[in-house]
Nucleic acid binder design. Structure first.
Ligand SMILES: [Mn+2]
Ligand SMILES: [Mn+2]
Ligand SMILES: [Zn+2]
Ligand SMILES: [Zn+2]
Lengths: 149, 149
DNA sequence: TGGTAATCGACAACGATTGTTGATTCCTCG
DNA sequence: CGAGGAATCAACAATCGTTGTCGATTACCA
């Protein structure tokens, strides 16, 4: 995603107004690697602007996604995750708590072999590693200790 | 997924009754590579049993998933896709129509490099190739021709 | 400064999935 | 075979995430 200043330009060029609500969301997302849900962005925005509406948050997130400044990930965690990092990368997903972490590794061998594409024109390749995050593993161990006691 | 006959055994062992509705779903799923939604299974089942309820379909699909006989894929196509093929494989997904095809290729290089796992214990690796399927490409071309005319 | 886009609140609606009820069917085990 | 209990049905309501609608108000920006 571009910087808040660049996004301000971009929105104006497109005839979209640059409101404080939108600028707030620009700032919250810039460099954000937490892959927040819309609700999470909403919560963070309300800390600065108590009257911002969830509708406005969705509106701005969708605008950014349409411009290609944001990717929406559907990783089976119930709700969409917004990713301001639009460069090619992959993800680690916690099956327990839904946490999403970036994995910046290139897998040059991951291609559909000739003759196996079944007519598809491939536009994108995602690798998703699913498992249990550190925090959820610690929880599990704590539970075991309690069970012993 | 096991064969309908084996699933009949398995259900009985678990104290679950083997009803005609469940057997119908066993048959519909066995060897099914279409990755159907619950609604699609429901539609196919109703062709044989007009009074089967959507509730019963979900119930049976969830039972099979809990037993590990079925995988539920969330590929961002709006609804869950049920996959009776529980062996390791990957998927081609059409961004336009949601079609899902199997890709039986092993990618041995696709592993999280040591030191990049960020505390995750990895349990599963999925590769998803997104693009446009053959049918949707043909549609596009037809549209172009119409535009020229 | 004015025209118009954006926002707000308060609520309804959506699609996918799950829950509830009470009546009915029918599988399974002895 | 017969009894007991699970499963199913229909007909709803409810959930969650997301989008739509409304009229009134705000405020961006050419
Ligand atoms: Mn990311
Ligand atoms: Mn598959
Ligand atoms: Zn976790
Ligand atoms: Zn398609």
């Amino acid at each position: 995603m571009k910087t808040p200043v660049e996004l301000t330009e971009l929105f104006r060029e497109r005839g979209l107004k640059v409101t404080p609500q939108r600028q707030c969301i620009f700032r919250l997302l810039h460099g954000n690697a937490a892959h927040p849900t819309a609700e999470a962005v909403y919560a963070a925005a309300r800390a600065e602007m108590p009257t911002i509406s969830l509708k406005t948050v969705y509106q701005t997130l969708n605008d950014l996604a349409e411009m290609g400044e944001l990717h929406v990930l559907d990783l089976g965690t119930g709700s969409g995750r917004f990713d301001p990092n639009v460069d090619a990368h992959h993800h680690l997903v916690c099956d327990r708590c839904g946490k999403v972490r970036d994995l910046h590794v290139d897998f040059p061998d991951v291609r559909v072999p000739r003759g196996k594409a079944q007519g598809f024109r491939i536009l994108d390749t995602e690798v998703v590693f699913r498992g249990i995050c550190d925090e959820c593993q610690t929880e599990d161990e704590t539970d075991k200790e309690k069970a012993h006691a």
